[in-house]
Simulated scan of single mutants.
Amino acid sequence: MKFGVVVFPGSNCDADCLHAIKVVTGQPVEYIWHKSGSVDGFDCIVLPGGFSYGDYLRCGAVARFSPVMTPVIDFAQRGGLLLGICNGFQILTEAGLLPGALHRNKNLQFLCHDTHLRIENNQTPFTSLATAGQVIRVPIAHGEGNYYADTATIQQLEENKQVLFRYCDPQGEITPAANPNGSVNNIAGICNRQGNVLGMMPHPERCAEDILGNTNGQLIFQSLLQQWQRRCG
């Protein structure tokens, strides 16, 4: 399974993603420069975290118009697997591949610490190795992670089971205290209706190997690999 990690000016988690995929997961991966006009040959594309284009205007607002986003959008619309992490999630909403928007954190401060996530839907390529209700520990590092959408959109996301991750306490309870940034319904990650595009604020690539003290993030990468092997097998 070949992964591509898009590099925008200001990306700072691209190397982390490449390491988690290549060294830890053991899959081929290449960087994709933001000026590239093609994403041919890739089975899964990752939009990494960071501060693309300095977060000018809004987070992800300029990156959405990068040349590479034209083939990335086409790739996703044709059913290709697309993972947006942190700033990548912000870019996905700006590009219209996912609904809603990411606002400033409720305390207006940058947050960088571990969070607990409850997996709400394990019937996707990104969560297939999980059990519904499973709690994993994944770090966040963002200033604009407050997910918002209008009431009708939130209702659709909930009804269609597009909410994959919610901030929770270590026991899996969804509480206001467990919500680090003010996201509606404690939402930490959502997918599109087809299930092939995931946006999440927490960083699975930062908790993917023993040396980091936590391997929970491997669940996402290994789920993708398993689903791909089943598709090709």
Rank of each mutant, 00 (worst) to 15 (best):
D210V: 15
F75N: 06
T175S: 14
Y53Q: 01
Q162L: 04
G172I: 00
I45G: 00
Q134R: 02
G213T: 07
Y31S: 06
N192C: 11
D40C: 08
T131L: 14
R166T: 06
V24T: 13
I119V: 10
N146C: 15
K2P: 09
G10F: 04
S183Y: 01
V163Q: 00
E205W: 05
A101Y: 09
R78N: 13
M1C: 13
M200F: 08
S52K: 07
P180M: 01
D16A: 04
G213A: 10
F165H: 04
Q226Y: 13
P71N: 10
L198C: 05
P125S: 03
Q226A: 14
Q90N: 07
Y167N: 07
G79S: 09
G41C: 00
R64Q: 11
V68P: 04
P176K: 14
D43C: 06
E173D: 15
I136E: 02
L129I: 07
Y147N: 03
G49H: 01
F75I: 07
P204Q: 04
N87P: 03
C112V: 06
S128I: 13
A141M: 12
M200Y: 02
C17L: 11
F110S: 04
A177I: 09
N146L: 12
S11Q: 05
P180S: 03
Q171E: 12
M1E: 10
H113M: 12
A141R: 11
L108C: 11
N216Q: 14
M201V: 06
G96P: 05
I140C: 02
C13S: 15
M201C: 05
Q134F: 05
T153P: 01
I174N: 04
C59Q: 07
A76R: 04
D74V: 11
V135Y: 03
L83S: 03
G172V: 01
N196R: 00
F51G: 05
G172L: 01
T93E: 09
E94I: 02
S183G: 12
D210Q: 13
P204D: 03
P71V: 09
P28N: 11
V46I: 13
E144S: 12
L57D: 13
T93V: 15
Y31K: 10
S183L: 03
S223I: 01
R137N: 12
T175H: 11
A95P: 04
G189C: 02
Q156Y: 08
L83H: 06
Y53C: 02
S223F: 03
N121A: 08
C191S: 14
V39Q: 00
N146M: 11
N181G: 09
N146I: 11
V68Y: 01
R58Q: 12
P180T: 01
I32H: 01
T25E: 14
D40P: 08
S36H: 08
P67R: 01
T127S: 15
D114V: 05
N185V: 12
L117S: 04
A15E: 15
C112N: 14
D169E: 12
L219N: 02
G199Y: 01
L47E: 00
Y31M: 07
G195Y: 00
G233N: 14
M200Q: 11
S11F: 07
